[in-house]
Simulated scan of single mutants.
Amino acid sequence: MNELKHYFNAISKLNEATWDRIVPYFKEDRLQKNEYFAKENKTAHQIAFLKTGVVRAYFINKEGKDYNKQFFVGQSIIGAYSSLLTGKTNLIAQQALTDCVIYTCDYAALTQLYEECPDLERFARKIAEYYFLEKEKKEIEIVLLDASQRYVLFKKEFPTLEQLITQFHIASYLGISATQLSRIRKQFASKKS
């Protein structure tokens, strides 16, 4: 639980009374590789603090091709936010790409504390702002940068991820084919030698 407290406080410090209120809501759990935290076409009810591991958020188009929208690498918050906010079914699945340790929490129960714990509501706002900025950044990158430039940014943002997940998932995140990614990686390798 110390990791959870450190993560929250690094974003927006919570007072001890708030901690005493929220700690019982979080339960340690595990996701096995390929297991889902949030499924498509299901209504979400939980968020989680990802302590260790890698989770991808992705969607599948009409042709059955999946696109990785985001990678969450421990430590971060995961959950089907749109579904949690609207009460509608989720469109973007979240799947573990490695074994993960998580702390789950009922979203509705946590948000009921906002009135009594404004520091918790402030934390939630800052998390929402962060993910909004990440989404906008990714949308701009996919339009304005070529595949090689997106790969360089991916390596900066996720320096250890390439050793943990398949090329297919990285290519899907970059909006290119696995063959294109292989070509780009070879170009970078030849520049280094």
Rank of each mutant, 00 (worst) to 15 (best):
T179C: 04
Q149P: 03
E121A: 13
A124G: 00
Y130W: 06
L14F: 07
C105G: 01
A17M: 09
E134D: 15
L113H: 00
A93V: 05
D20S: 12
S182M: 04
A96L: 13
E115R: 03
C100S: 14
Y81T: 15
K33N: 04
L97C: 09
A189C: 11
K51E: 06
I170G: 03
K27V: 06
Q163W: 14
Y151Q: 04
E40C: 12
A128Y: 03
C105D: 02
I184L: 12
F37H: 08
D146P: 08
I77W: 01
S148R: 10
I102G: 00
F8Y: 01
Q180R: 08
L145M: 14
F49R: 03
L97Y: 05
R30N: 01
V101W: 10
K192C: 10
E129M: 12
I102K: 00
T166Y: 08
R30A: 08
Q163Y: 13
Q149K: 04
P24L: 10
I140Q: 05
S177L: 10
C100T: 06
K42N: 06
Y36F: 11
L181S: 03
P159K: 14
L97S: 07
L50Q: 10
K51R: 08
T89W: 05
Y130Q: 13
K69Y: 11
N15E: 15
A17G: 01
E3C: 03
L50R: 01
Q70C: 14
E116A: 10
A128G: 14
T52A: 14
I176H: 06
L31G: 14
P118C: 02
K186Q: 14
D99S: 06
T43M: 12
H45Q: 09
Y130E: 13
Q167D: 12
A171H: 02
R30M: 12
V101A: 08
Y114F: 11
K138W: 02
E3T: 10
F123P: 03
K126M: 13
